[in-house]
Design a protein around this nucleic acid. Structure first.
Lengths: 157, 157
DNA sequence: GTTGATGCAAAAAGTTTGCATATCG
DNA sequence: CGATATGCAAACTTTTTGCATCAAC
């Protein structure tokens, strides 16, 4: 089953209508899976293929997708909400590397926190349902080349 | 040297004036060190002792304190920026536990990430300067007592 | 005394909401 | 057909900014 069909099923299961607008928005997210798009960015992109679509619909759809746990709403401190598609069981495999030099935001698809979470359970009586782990710093390649922008960056993609 | 003197020194070192407004704002942060106050909350509290102070000054002061790395600006997804005093060398000893049941936000003063950071250095060529680690979940005591608000919560303080 | 900080109000930016119309199931 | 989603515009919230006045060094 392809991703859009899978999401369509999740909509249907909760009695939400899969309108053409919602489908177009989900498609934008799938096409830009590696980015963390803001509402405004999703709006700009989806308008290319669906010029009539309104901004409020983007807000409402992204809110709905968040409720359904299809996307995750995040805030990286730039004043806008950003959305990240959650792969199927990847909720917990999802850390970020943010480069101070080039601005690149890399995702790490791995779960490095299982040990810490059992420690929380043991020592704090706290059961983890979700987590967030971001690292800020710099790629050594960025420091040596002095790249200023992501597109010049030689760091691993 | 007490905290406020230490901060005064950091201001002086960077040629920033320590006005009475700024001092009042810093004092509020010190008095509420365990909370993560929003701008509006700081404003309400500081107005009690300094009624004439303007909201823009709170915004400007907190921005300045962030630049000086005296506080850390964070966003927990409730739509407002929140500020957390950084103890001296505690930048890295600073994780959060957020309870889904009672809403409590606990700080963990410990650094659980040293191993992961050396792994990033090795495997990704990435040098970490800062990080953020939040866990969402629930205290087992909250689940069993069914407390709804922080003040009813029996979880460890 | 100079330079930078404050207060106020206005504006900007991001997000939410009300309502008439249109669409999916 | 009925319930729900959309588009538009207005409202709301949070944050930023311009400018005259004031205060710290």
């Amino acid at each position: 089953m392809n991703p859009i069909e899978h999401i369509a099923q999740q909509f249907a299961a909760q009695n939400y209508k899969l309108t053409s607008q919602r489908e177009a928005i989900v498609q934008v997210l799938l096409d830009n899976e590696k980015d963390h798009l803001s509402v405004e960015e999703v709006y700009m992109i989806v308008k290319l293929s669906y010029p009539h679509l309104g901004l409020a619909t983007v807000y409402r759809t992204l809110e709905l997708l968040t409720e359904l746990h299809i996307v995750e709403k995040m805030n990286f401190g730039d004043g806008v909400a950003r959305y990240d598609l959650r792969g199927d069981e990847q909720a917990h495999m999802h850390h970020h590397l943010i480069c101070n030099v080039c601005g690149k935001l890399e995702e790490i698809k791995d779960d490095w926190l299982v040990d810490l979470e059992s420690r929380l359970e043991r020592e704090y009586g706290f059961t983890v349902t979700d987590h967030r782990l971001d690292f800020k710093g710099s790629y050594n390649t960025c420091k040596s080349t002095g790249c200023k922008k992501e597109k010049d960056c030689k760091a691993v993609s």
